[in-house]
Design a protein around this nucleic acid. Structure first.
Lengths: 349, 349
DNA sequence: CTGTTAGCGCCTTCAG
DNA sequence: CTGAAGGCGCTAACAG
């Protein structure tokens, strides 16, 4: 009767078990199974590998992490994983991490900055190789300073921080060309014959919203076109936010508007639904444009004009920056965007 | 000049540092910071907490895991995180895990069973509290046995396995009522006046596809309706698969069909796009129905008739099963589905 | 090339 | 209630 049968909770085999089974020392077993630098006699190697296989041994990654003071994990923070914007970035990030045999831990902030700060503290406990923060940064939000301090503390103890958004904090960042993309969209829309615009924006402290709105306005300004302030409404960065923004525009009146730009596709799609519910025909009565090029944008009717952001590539870049030793807190990786004119904004006479 | 300034790589403060800073022993510091059972003098408690705050200390979770032989992580396997079906489940799972202060590690199988098996092996190394496998199980696929063995080994060493799909393997599972949902859908569709059906299914070894097809057929059979085998095509479980399936149906001819049921929304939406590209008017010329009720299904035009699966709740259930000590390998949690009749299947005269 | 021996950061009996 | 000491599984010098 082995000692195992006395134990209340069964327990996975350890390296020690493998070594004993193979009749070698712990060190040899360790080297045979992982041994980066050192090499080990082929006979012993086989014996160890066989033993490991026989016992169905899997190295305890936590133990490895404490022993070498380096984990094989990265942490990815997203606002909402059910949002296609973030799930696409996550897909790219997970794939890139996977290629380097790094596991990805995901956490969700629900767009709450206090929560985001708290999560960073918790995640630090995992001692991940890197923490990647996705989602727009905020302006004029007190917690941003505390967040920055927390991240700086993390970096000062060997971690790496990568931001996906704006470079408002002193960390490596994958920069999304929001202003440029929106400006280009505005130009193309003017080129297509549109002149009278309204905008459904997000919270003005959300830099992504701000950049897209101001970039769009700049593009229009180049053609001497201005957006009347009453034609810019703000709402949440969600589908319902889009519906609400549309309702608000409907209230102030849309007679002098021929195109509504929602600062992201999810909102644009919500807005389309609200406009249609109000009896408007799209695109005949009103044109709509969004931003991001989420998968749904081509499946709605009319297909949504938008600005494509290579989201999966963004996730990959973020991980690459995170894992590249050459990266430091001043590193920056710009990512471009591409205007996609579709049926929701047909050329106007 | 402190010793820290000599170190090549900076390092996070340890519990030892905190204890020294607070002028107490390691044990006291440990108890003050986590100490479940033991209680510690209020004065010391404060001293320790203050010291921890001052040093910006975060407990090393890996070290805790090795010390107590129990990690605070669960692993979630999905086929494709950018697919709204899985990202919704993930959202629910992450939230539920979060509530119990458990971190979620995500891995992606890309619908490859070999990869899935490999991932389980790797993930076991993390010693997660549980491994949750989402996505349809396969029938007649050799690796399912090896997977089962691997999972059994994991469970025999204290882990917990939860499946989200079919209970074809001897582990706790959240069972999705695919057959029931599809049968109900068929009934409602017949009730709405439809009589001639075609189906876009997935790989026949995919149990989710099979269950939905056979449930649907059963529902029709109750009314004496059969689907001609040539009107059942198979394709990948993706949007492109849906397009392809639609093309195939278009080829064999759709004159004697008034409704196409795609076994999931993503495929249904791809099919709609293909049908429309072929000049069909939806729903006048052809009705379409899907399954899952992903967010996009209500945003397409016409809005898609589907069967709602409470995806986020499914994720939550999976985590609850995973973390509930009362769960064992025979536990089962059935989850119902609800038919949602929308514009893509208007009542027929 | 192999084995012995300290740790890694933390928890947890076990004495005081 | 507190502190000292051993151990968790593994790695990395250090000898042999």
């Amino acid at each position: 009767m082995s000692v195992d049968e006395h134990r209340a909770t069964p327990v996975p085999p350890t390296l020690h078990d493998v070594a004993r089974e193979a009749g070698v020392s712990l060190a040899t077993a360790s080297r045979a199974l992982n041994g980066s630098t050192r090499t080990v006699n082929e006979t012993f190697r086989r014996r160890v590998l066989d033993a490991a296989l026989r016992l169905n041994y899997t190295p305890n990654l936590s133990a490895q992490a404490v022993a070498k003071g380096l984990s094989s994990t990265i942490s990815l923070l997203v606002s909402d994983i059910a949002d296609p914007y973030f799930s696409s970035i996550a897909a790219g990030a997970i794939r890139a991490a996977d290629e380097q045999r790094i596991a990805t831990t995901m956490a969700v902030t629900h767009r709450d900055h206090e929560r985001e700060l708290e999560l960073v503290r918790v995640l630090r406990g995992q001692r991940p190789r890197a923490i990647i923060l996705t989602g727009s940064r905020w302006d004029g939000v007190a917690s941003e300073h505390r967040l920055s301090d927390e991240l700086a503390a993390y970096e000062s103890t060997g971690g790496r921080v990568v931001l996906v958004s704006q470079r408002t904090l002193p960390f490596a960042t994958v920069q999304l060309g929001n202003a440029t993309g929106a400006r280009e969209l505005a130009r193309e829309l003017v080129g297509a014959g549109y002149r009278r615009f309204a905008v459904i924006a997000g919270d003005d402290r959300l830099l992504t919203s701000r950049e897209r709105v101001s970039g769009f306005a700049e593009g229009l300004a180049e053609h001497g076109i201005a957006i009347h302030p009453s034609r810019i409404v703000r709402a949440e960065f969600t589908r319902d936010g889009g519906r609400q923004g549309a309702a608000e525009l409907l209230n102030v009146g849309l007679d002098d508007v021929d195109l509504v730009f929602a600062v992201n596709d999810v909102m644009a799609i919500g807005a389309m639904s609200a406009f249609r519910a109000a009896g408007l025909r799209l695109p005949e009565d009103l044109a709509v444009a969004g931003y991001d090029d989420i998968a749904t944008s081509r499946d709605v009717t009319p297909a949504l004009t938008t600005v494509a952001v290579p989201l999966e590539a963004v996730g990959e870049h973020a991980v690459r920056l995170a894992l590249d030793p050459a990266t430091d807190s001043t590193t920056t990786e710009p990512v471009g965007a591409t205007v996609l004119l579709r049926e929701s904004t047909p050329p106007r006479a």
